[in-house]
Design a protein around this nucleic acid. Structure first.
Length: 508
DNA sequence: TTGTGTTTTATTGCCTCC
DNA sequence: GGAGGCAATAAAACACAA
């Protein structure tokens, strides 16, 4: 541990000439992830600036991006493989995800499956080219998944590097938080039970993946194809609320219902006019799930706190599943008392990808043990995530009790400003408290509209899903209640669009 | 404390494009 | 031929169980 600390603290000084492998600091990783979520193929200028900002060499930046893409690719492949196994029982989906499915990189070596060159995607994205939603979905998945997710995630409005760095301090943990939030706003294990019930029990990583992002869910997502858009309004909100008990449980969330049924219903989504998505549990769950599992690509600043990258999701999923016995124990102990809002409050977003994983895990198990965050003292530009996740608050239960959030956030603000690396956000939204931020989540209309405005500015005319994947307000989460009522396994692993329409008609 | 498995980083070779 | 990217590989760092 101490040695690694040394490595961290010395990294920037020795990374260039020291052959010994050095880990990037959480702040660096977060920034990289953030950037990666928006630009999988950064230009030279971007790399240079990024390298300068992060104190890394361009070579390191390039290498990191390269490996990051590979990671995405690998994860996507694994995920697809897992889904493919699931898909065997649903031939419809098989077509969309035939073969290995996606390749995040434009390798023509894997030409046996549909592939969208990320570079092309990005270039088109920048030029406002409108991809077929299906492709977008796929591409989005590549970006992001959980990651995760992360992790996770932002708009293309990055006119400058700073814009791209958003509030990296928020996403990872929000992401993580969302993963564990159930309909009741409490944390819960990732429905592993349902996965088990499915009978399909992949081993190893696939097992974890299957538990995290149920293959059926992904299958449904794909099944929806072009109609599915993650940046649209919350699926289902456009429809008349289901009659109570339609899905064995009330739809309304006593707390968040207004946002869902009201504002959300009024969401003006470019896509939903013509394509009314079924309010079926599957779909809604899908949205929720996609939000959780997909990369928070193009997450706009207003909803930056939602996701952060596939790897974060992935990593969190895997690792935290492993530690769920301890982690969730703490979580649930607090969750019972905290509403979802509280949960968000409890996570000011100071967690970086690593903070949300290793450190916390270490914390959960080893208490204060863990890597010393060198950025606490040696990196003036580090974000508060390091501090937030410092061993002092590593104990989650203790952390929940902590209400020194505002100070933390404000602190980060100072950092951000000084550093100029991470975009300043209207800190009122964030700092004003926890609550203010939460309000945003509960106001899908506002969030979405802001996103669209931003999109318009960016010239990204039709990039539905990416934006929405992350812009889905947390208020939507409770909607999952209905679907979750029946575990994922109870949902159709696939259904045709006819079925989808049928569901709609039935609701109507 | 140690062994094992996973993840991340760095290096190298090959390929494609300009 | 150079640049950029991908893939394979090795090695270090890390987490976790015994």
């Amino acid at each position: 541990m101490e040695e690694s600390n040394e490595v961290h603290s010395e990294e920037n000084k020795t990374s260039f000439d020291n052959k010994k492998r050095v880990l990037k600091t959480p702040a660096q990783l977060t920034a990289l992830e953030k950037f990666y979520n928006e630009h999988k193929y950064p230009t030279e200028e971007m790399k240079s600036q990024l390298a300068e900002e992060l104190g890394l060499s361009e070579k390191q930046i390039s290498g990191w991006f390269c490996h990051r893409r590979l990671k995405d690719k690998r994860l996507s492949r694994d995920e697809t493989y897992a889904n493919g196994r699931q898909d065997r029982s649903s031939g419809v989906i098989q077509d969309r995800a035939s073969g290995l499915g996606q390749d995040s990189c434009g390798s023509t070596k894997h030409g046996d499956y549909r592939y969208v060159d990320p570079r092309e995607v990005e270039s088109r994205r920048l030029s406002g080219y409108d991809f077929p939603p299906a492709d977008l979905t796929r591409e989005h998945r590549i970006h992001y998944t959980e990651r995760v997710s992360m992790d996770n995630t932002s708009s293309e409005s990055s006119s400058s590097l700073q814009d791209r760095f958003l509030t990296q301090t928020e996403d990872p943990y929000d992401m993580e938080t969302s993963r564990y939030i159930t309909d009741n706003g409490v944390f819960s294990p990732l429905n592993t039970k349902g996965a088990e019930n499915m009978g399909y029990k992949p081993s190893g990583y696939l097992k974890v993946k299957g538990e995290i992002e149920n293959a059926a869910i992904t299958a449904v997502k794909r099944q929806l194809g072009r109609h599915f858009r993650e940046d649209g309004p919350p699926l289902g909100v456009e429809f008349d609320p289901l009659p109570p008990g339609a899905f064995e449980s009330p739809i309304m969330d006593p707390v968040q219902e207004p946002s869902i049924g009201g504002d959300a219903a009024g969401l003006d989504s470019p896509d939903t006019s013509g394509v009314k998505r079924q309010p079926s549990p599957s779909t809604r769950y899908e949205v929720y799930n996609s939000k959780l599992s997909s990369q928070g690509l193009y997450m706009h600043q207003e909803n930056r706190g939602i996701m952060h990258g596939v790897d974060m999701v992935e990593r969190k999923s895997r690792k935290q599943l492993r530690q769920k016995s301890t982690y969730l124990k703490d979580i649930n102990s607090s969750a019972g008392k905290n509403s979802s809002l509280d949960m968000y409050d409890a996570f000011p977003g100071g967690m970086s990808a690593y903070n949300g994983n290793r450190k916390n895990r270490m914390s959960s198990k080893h208490g204060h043990r863990g890597r010393k965050i060198t950025s606490e003292t040696t990196e003036p530009w580090s974000n508060e995530s390091d501090k937030v996740c410092s061993p002092n608050i590593g104990q989650r239960s203790d952390y929940f009790k902590s209400k020194a959030l505002n100070s933390v956030v404000k602190h980060s603000e100072t950092h951000d400003t000084e550093r100029g690396l991470f975009t300043m956000i209207p800190r009122e939204e964030k700092v004003d408290g926890e609550c203010k931020a939460v309000k945003d989540y509960h106001n899908p209309l506002r969030v979405t509209m802001t996103d669209e405005v931003a999109v318009g500015k960016q010239g990204r005319v039709n990039f539905p899903h990416q934006d929405y994947a992350t812009s889905v307000p947390f208020s939507q989460i409770p909607e999952r209640k209905n679907q979750i009522k029946g575990t994922a396994m109870e949902m159709p692993s696939s259904f045709s669009e006819d079925e989808t329409a049928e569901t709609n008609s039935s609701v109507d």
